[in-house]
Write a protein that binds this DNA or RNA. Structure first.
Length: 425
RNA sequence: GGAGAGUUGGCCGAGUGGUCGAAGGCGCACGCCUGGAAAGCGUGUAACCGGCAAAACCGGUUCAAGGGUUCGAAUCCCUUACUCUCCGCCA
């Protein structure tokens, strides 16, 4: 969430940014500034009254001690009058603050200057295209859900029986391939200097709010009412929240974390051929990378994360392209997002497998994640970044489809030491 | 799940109505001492909001969270969360 101060100081930039997002309610900016002014007026008034009450209370104490109870009683009446006054001021301040908070939380992050204009996914900029040849598939090439069934490695119907649609059941080499990919991704992240985290898979509302899933994506998360907990839609939530309400030292930055978790997403209302098989599921595995870094170098860090993901896809020998999301298609909390898409040869479409974003201070403000600059007293908000590195289900879809031949499926070499086999079946 | 005890600053810990943003210790920073270090000595060491664009300074808030009693609450009362101990259950 943006800070009222930032909006006051950089009003023009904020409005331009909101326009780029095609955010409708532009005069929310003026309403925020007006409420913020009110809030500060109420606070100044309240502080003055409270200071007077504090002063009088001290006097009363002194009077009692020196045995002048009658004088004290007169002052008590004064305090009582001030308290009445204070009560209404505090009520006004509180309701103003609540309204201000509601407005602030409704405002999305401001896009980075490099974010392309545009409204829909079609307007996203192809930041890096695939220039090498595409896989040459046999005439009777099959989509991954047929391949998976043929080779008995993913059992969709039994997943439906046990749980419901969108909960795939992996068997035999299919299950091993999952494990192999997870270990491969984790090892690569560790080699790149990320600390491995194994976080809780459920989070409380405070955590979901801090990273921005609440209130924006409430309907996307599975919610356990009895215990008031949410199943995580991504490791980003528990991993970033490690540093909620923390003040770091400047020298501690950057902090680089990685974690594998299953991810749970309700994906309500999604049906049809675009979501068949592994294209969109309610539970999938993902290795996430999270970085907390200094505001001055967060965009270099974003580039570094891009390189990390490129390396993974290169090693998996998958054709991919990178999109720079346009203002209208970016997530609510992000300032700049790159999506990685792999080519799914049998379906002849691109599948999103990674989303790498810089949130600047949007999450850290909600999260109260700060750092103390060297030799300075005042704390600053840290920048937070994260990316998938990588999400499994669609990677598996592409691996199966792109590497099929008339005998089965070839496993890319980088995975052999993890799978223990080089072909399916 | 049942019973009991707790929750105070970066950490440990004192504090049962005013002199408490909070003793003391540890840690950390700076200085003295030293050839250099350790030890010792001294000084300092929370966050947030507002006045204010910033610094100095001033005001306000914060002793798990929220509410209440009181002129005045870390301290008394209520609610909630969490932690620990014992019992029960258990991968």
């Amino acid at each position: 969430m943006l800070q009222a101060n930032t909006i006051r100081q950089e009003k023009e930039r904020i409005i331009a940014g909101l326009k780029k997002r095609h955010f409708q309610d532009l005069d929310v900016v003026d309403r925020i500034l007006a409420l913020d002014d009110d809030r500060r007026k109420f606070q100044a008034a309240g502080d003055d009254i409270q200071a007077e009450i504090n002063r009088l209370s001290k006097q009363i104490g002194d009077l009692f001690k020196s045995g002048k109870a009658a004088d004290a009683a007169a002052l008590k009446d004064q305090v009582a009058a001030h308290k009445e006054q204070l009560k209404t001021v505090l009520e006004d301040q509180e309701s103003t603050a609540v309204q201000l908070e509601e407005l602030l939380i409704s405002v999305p992050n401001i896009p980075h200057e490099s974010v392309p204009a545009g409204r829909t996914p079609e307007d996203n900029e192809v930041f890096q295209d695939w220039t090498k040849p595409m896989p040459d598939l046999p005439k009777d090439a099959k989509p991954h859900w047929e391949l998976a069934e043929d080779h008995g490695i993913i059992d969709f119907p039994t997943g439906v029986k046990i749980t419901g649609a969108g909960f795939p059941l992996y068997r035999g080499k299919g299950a091993i391939l999952q494990r192999a990919l997870i270990n491969f991704f984790l090892d690569e992240a560790r080699a790149a200097g990320f600390e491995e985290i194994q976080p809780p898979l459920m989070v409380n509302a405070d955590s979901a709010r801090a990273t921005g899933q609440l209130p924006d994506k409430e309907g996307q998360m599975y919610y356990v009412e009895k215990d008031d907990l949410y199943l995580i839609p991504t490791a980003e939530v528990p991993v970033t929240n490690i540093y909620r309400d923390v003040i770091l030292e400047e020298k501690d930055l950057p902090i680089k974390l990685t974690g594998y978790t299953p991810c749970f997403r309700r994906e309500a209302g999604a049906y049809g051929k675009d979501v068949r098989g592994l294209n969109r599921v309610h539970q999938f595995d993902k290795v996430e990378i999270v970085i907390l870094d200094h505001p001055e170098r967060s965009y270099e860090t974003l580039d570094m994360m891009l390189n990390h993901v490129r390396g993974l896809l290169d090693k998996l020998e998958l054709p991919y392209r990178i999109l720079r999301l346009c203002g209208g298609d970016m997530g609510f909390t992000s300032a700049l997002t790159y999506d990685f898409e792999v080519w799914s040869a049998a379906q002849e479409r691109w599948l999103e497998v990674s989303s790498v974003s810089n949130f600047e201070t949007f999450q850290s403000h909600r999260m109260k994640l700060r750092y103390r600059p060297e030799n300075e007293k005042k704390t600053q908000l840290t920048h937070t970044l994260n990316g998938s590195a990588l999400a499994l289900a669609r990677i598996v879809a592409a691996l199966l489809e792109n590497n099929q031949d008339s005998f089965g499926i070839r496993v890319p070499e980088a995975l052999h030491r993890y799978t223990g086999f080089d072909r399916i079946p």
